[in-house]
Design a protein around this nucleic acid. Structure first.
Length: 519
RNA sequence: GGCGGUGUAGCUCAGUUGGUUAGAGCAUACGGCUCAUAUCCGUAGUGUCCGGGGUUCGAAUCCCUGCACCGCCA
């Protein structure tokens, strides 16, 4: 059985510029992809942009552009951002791509022919800006909260998807598959949502009101609305129905989303797939929000965190590490520069960076940079090896569970253990005695070997740092191709390597109080 | 209004099925080392486990109730 892994991010809507939320989701997907590639999985990592709808059309008009040109421009903002955050996606899907539109129409046709799409009438308070209906309760002083305008009551005929027909099947499927939606709190939310009767889903808009969309194959007076367009990207990118990528990767599909789109992904999408005769995805992974200073991030509060600004100021790997270390997957977390600086100084500069630095410095000082072969194993060496081995095992389990905070806290147990090991074996004292040269060589070898392993463990989240550690300890640039299993085998580090003292891994951030980016 | 979540050390949080003196990291204080990015190692803490009531030999954990904050739904 081939080991395969398929991970998706949502496709991001192009009326918004990239912020920390987009960055987090995409970085998590990247870390998972790198980890699975390390673990020998054939991996497909998908991200992209959602480009239809009125908001895009209006923004295009405001900018004096065609919607095509405008979508190209904003889509490129995302596409160009990802390489700068070391995102290793295999494909970038756009909903305006021909291949996507074809699949959307194919699915619509299929579901329509199966009798699961019908024509009906719907009336309600409609906000043209949002291109959606509002309930009375959602309105603030009778006005749309986004546009501060009174919605109009309209009645119109539209196409509906018989979602209700698949409600029982879906409940059953979720109950049978414990891992279908995780963490559990989101699985429970979906199940409790399903306790009420599902309404059918309105899937069209008349094209005289919304022209920027994909035409219904069975009625050209309408375009499809939102979900039958956007969600289908996950299979159109794989060249559904006959593409080899679809056959290989769909059975192992895992989606990654923030909690705001739980219902579309947990309910609409599986029922759509069912109606189209496609098996459901394997798993939906749901994460929480990044709050800024205890409040929600929003344009109106002016507290948008821009990923490239953080990278510029603190470095990319630090940012990636912080995001994964600080958030318990599934829960909300707070982003603050103070917390980021604290992580950088204590975890990265003091613990990890300084460990590499002191180890390499001693090899240079005592052996002119050349790694000597180790001597007999002592009890304290054995304890270090055992810690390394148990940490590697824990990290593997935690990564599979998406418990990144635990995975890295575990990795840091090993880093602390090596610092402690150096303290207890005191190589600087051994260096003073001629007959302790072999013991000195052993201690330094063990520290370097630990660093080799640590680099493999941190590679998914901090690829640049991992590679830099390997370079400094003369293991070359092969870390990205290194199997995770190599972290499990002690003693891989080559005797005779020439270590190199290069740049500081993480400079300490000494500003007493960081400010500017979040306030 | 209905449902759900959260409330534990100064801060961020762990605490499995109820079981000894409630934990980790950071921050703080003191001590040690000097290879290292004034870094590292060790020691020390401090807690009305949101309030009240109950079950139990025993409750942060289970039940009831109140308060605060958050989310989803109507």
């Amino acid at each position: 059985m081939a080991k395969r892994f398929y991970i998706t991010t949502p496709i991001y809507y192009v009326n918004d510029v990239p912020h920390i939320g987009h960055a987090y989701t995409t970085i998590v997907a990247d870390v998972l992809s790198r980890f699975h590639r390390q673990s020998g999985f054939e991996t497909f990592f998908l991200t992209g942009t959602d480009e239809h709808g009125n908001k895009v059309l209006q923004a295009a008009e405001a900018a004096g552009k065609t919607p095509e040109a405008y979508a190209d421009q904003i889509s490129a903002l995302f596409k160009d951002l990802w390489p700068q955050l070391d995102i290793s996606n295999d494909y970038f899907i756009r909903t305006t791509a021909e291949k996507h539109k074809k699949v959307v129409q194919l699915i619509l046709k299929k579901v329509h022919e199966n009798g699961d799409i019908y024509f009906g009438e719907y009336g309600g308070h409609y906000c043209f800006g949002c291109e959606r209906f509002y309930t009375q309760r959602e309105l603030v002083d009778g006005k749309c909260p986004d546009h501060q305008k009174e919605p109009q009551f309209i009645k119109e005929k539209n196409y509906f998807f018989k979602m209700s027909k698949y409600q029982n099947w879906l409940i059953h499927h979720i109950e049978e598959h414990e891992d279908f939606i995780r963490p559990e709190i989101y699985r429970n939310k979906v199940l409790s949502f399903l306790q009420e009767p599902l309404e059918d889903l309105c899937i069209s808009r008349p094209n005289n009101r919304l022209s920027w969309g994909i035409s219904l194959p069975f009625d050209s007076r309408y375009v499809t609305y939102v979900w039958f367009d956007a969600l289908i990207n996950y299979i159109s990118a794989l060249d559904y129905p006959s593409g080899s990528a679809f056959k290989k990767f769909w059975p192992v599909a895992e989606h990654l989303i923030a909690k705001d789109i739980l219902i579309p992904h947990g309910i609409y999408w599986p029922t759509m797939l069912r109606a189209a005769g496609i098996p459901p995805y394997k798993r939906l992974n749901v994460h929480g929000y990044w709050n800024i200073k205890e409040s929600k991030m929003s344009k109106s509060l002016g507290n948008i965190i821009r990923p490239l600004e953080v990278k510029e100021k603190y470095g990319l790997d630090s940012f990636r590490y912080f995001l994964l270390r600080e958030m318990a997957f599934g829960l909300d977390s707070n982003f603050s520069e103070d917390a980021l600086v604290q992580r950088i100084n204590s975890d990265l500069a003091n613990d990890l960076g300084n460990l590499l630095n002191r180890t390499v410095a001693m090899v240079i000082k005592y052996f002119e940079g050349k790694v000597q072969s180790p001597g007999p194993v002592e009890t304290i060496d054995e304890a270090l090896r055992e810690t390394a081995s148990s940490v590697v095992e824990e990290v593997e389990v935690f990564m599979r569970e998406m418990a990144f905070n635990k995975a890295f806290s575990s990795t840091w147990k090993l880093i602390a253990k090596v610092n402690q090991y150096l303290d207890q074996t005191a190589p600087w004292s051994l260096a003073k005695e001629k007959k302790q040269q072999r013991r000195l060589a052993t201690v330094l070898y063990n520290a370097l070997e630990s660093l080799r392993i640590i680099a493999i463990l941190i590679y998914p989240v901090m690829p640049r740092t991992g590679v830099e550690i390997w370079r400094q300890i003369d293991l070359g640039a092969q870390l990205p191709e290194q199997e995770f299993s190599q972290a499990k085998i002690w003693g891989q580090y080559r005797v005779g390597s020439i270590v190199e003292r290069a740049r500081t891994l993480f400079p300490r951030v000494d500003t007493p109080k960081a400010q500017g980016m979040d306030g």
